[in-house]
Every structure is written in C-alpha cells, then in structure tokens.
Write a protein that binds this DNA or RNA. Structure first.
Length: 291
DNA sequence: TTCCAGGAAGTCG
DNA sequence: CGACTTCATGGA
C-alpha cells in the first residue's frame, strides 16, 4: 500500500453519535468498511479510497488519496445524505404512535441509510443469502483482492459487472461464494445482454424497479428491497430477513406471517420511509442479541 | 454436534 | 397456494 492520504476535511451535513456512525457504516448496509481504530473507518467506494473519522463533538472528518478530493467530496454528499433530508425522514416516521420504533430511534438517533453505487449494492446483496455479515465482507474482500482494479493509491476497487463477466464461476467459488457463484455469473451475462440494466432501473418507480430486479437469478423480494433501499434511494422498500421476521413477531404480534405479508405491512405501517424504520428495528434487535 | 446466517428457487401435494 | 429441499460455507 502506498497510502498518501489527503488532509482531513469536515463533512458538515451529518453530526452522528458514535454508535449511529458505526452502525450506519458497518451495520449490514455496506460491507466495504473496516475499523482502523475506535473512531475511524476505511473503505473503497467505486474507485475512491476513503477514510471517515468521528470526533467527540460529533463532527465527521473525511480524507481520500491525493488528487481525488473533488470526486470524493461529491461521492460522499450522495453517499451519506444531509441533515435537512433526514430531519424530514425522522419527523415523518410514526414514532409518535409506535413506542417500539421510538425506543429504537432513541438508541441510534442519527442512523442513516447509505446511498451506495448500484452495481456494488447488487453484488453485495447477491452474496448475502444465508451468510453472516462478517462472511459477506470476507467474500467481497477476496473478490476485490483477486479480480479488482488496481488503483494508483495502491488500493483496489471491486470488479464491475463488466469485469465479472471475465471471472469464471469456479474462481468465484474459490472466493467462498458457494451456490451464489452461479447467480453472479448468470446475472453478469443478463446485465450485459441489456434486457435489464442497472441504469434503466434508476428511472422506474419502486414496484417496477423491484419487478425488474427480481428477474435476475438469485434476486428475490428481500434482496431486491435491499438493493433498492441501499442503492437506489427507494426509502419505502422494506427488506424482510430473518431478523425483521423476528422483530415483527416479538414487537408487532405478527405471528406466522409470511415475508411477503410482513413487507407489505411494513410499508403500510411505517409509510414512505419504511426502509429507514426497518433499519432502526434491524439494528436494535441485533444489538439486543449481542448483549 | 446442531443450528443458523440480512434467501432464492425448484418440487410436490 | 403452502410446505419442504437443496444450494456452500463457516460462525456461534
């Protein structure tokens, strides 16, 4: 690594507490961040190496490698969002009438939904099926190390979907992808053929975008919702995984509901920013389990 | 050892 | 439609 990092700069549109900072970056939305010390994360988004550091006055500082400051600043503005948007999101969620949601929001008062690059989000969540977060990170790190593009700074970018076309399925299995390898290879071909493209989904409303994503092998409702929420900024998407099923059973008395019904309930009950509510519930439940 | 992990898709009744 | 299997791999 020939890290030559720029000076730290202030990110003025987010003042999180430490827990919200950590949970947002490394709580199961993104898998590219690793802690370098108690208050600092390092990662590579597309071809931009980044460091983010939390300060006790709740200011966030960032730095990138030299000559990338401009593109890094623009990327972060989209990736992390801004105070004005989130004041509206928080205010719109039904915490006034939902005491469990309020409890979850009080615990992580500055939690945000990342807005990640489309291709990287799809790739990550195709890896996510019946894997723990640490394992998803390992798979993606192996892929990055083996098949990613070398950056001038010495870091590596994740392979793009075009590049994944050149990666044999067996090589993916060597990166511990298991049965997910075939889905990645088939998806790479389908995206190349152009019936569904990551760009064409951008302009579609939530339901149509979800239908399109679900035509890709290995993408069902849950993974589609994750990609739409964490990549396409569809805040009404309500991913239902095993944790959320547990949450809705324990705290909302939805016993024996199917994931499809729970997803529908979530969008109705929590409203147009249901995906943010989902992340509060998800993070809180996981934190309880760790205790 | 057994169970489960930010599931999806195929089969069977 | 719903219930059950299989898919690979490793953590708890």
């Amino acid at each position: 690594m020939t890290d030559r990092w720029s000076d730290w700069q202030l990110y003025s549109d987010w003042q999180p507490d430490l827990d919200s900072f950590k949970e947002t970056l490394d709580g199961g939305q993104a898998f590219c961040w690793h802690e370098t010390d108690e208050v600092t994360f390092q990662g590579v988004v597309l071809s931009t190496p980044l460091r983010l550091r939390w300060h006790p006055n709740k200011e966030i500082a960032w730095s990138t490698t030299e000559k990338q400051e401009k593109q890094a600043g623009e990327l972060l503005a989209k990736y992390l969002g801004n105070n004005k948007t989130y004041r509206n999101y928080y205010d719109t969620l039904p915490w006034r009438s939902d005491s469990h949601l309020k409890r979850c929001m009080d615990e992580l008062p500055a939690l945000r939904i990342l807005r990640q690059p489309h291709g990287e989000t799809l790739l990550a969540f195709l890896c996510s099926a019946t894997k723990q977060i640490v394992q998803i990170k390992e798979m993606l790190n192996l892929l990055r190390a083996g098949f990613g593009t070398q950056l001038p700074s010495g870091h590596k970018a994740l392979p793009t979907w075009d590049q994944l076309l050149q990666v044999e399925e067996a090589a993916l299995r060597d990166c511990k992808f298991g049965f997910r390898a075939a889905n990645i290879s088939k998806t790479a071909k389908l995206l190349m053929e152009g019936e569904v493209t990551l760009g064409s989904i951008t302009s579609l409303p939530y339901n149509e975008a979800k239908e399109n994503l679900c035509t890709l092998p290995g993408v069902g409702e849950k993974i589609a919702d994750c990609v739409l929420l964490f990549g396409y900024n569809h805040m009404q998407a309500f991913p239902v995984d095993t944790w959320i099923l547990k949450v809705m059973q324990r705290h909302y008395q939805l016993d024996d509901w199917t994931p499809k019904k729970v997803s529908h309930f979530g969008r109705k009950h929590f409203g147009k920013y249901a995906g943010l509510a989902q992340q509060f519930l998800f993070s809180w439940e996981r934190k309880q389990a760790r205790k």
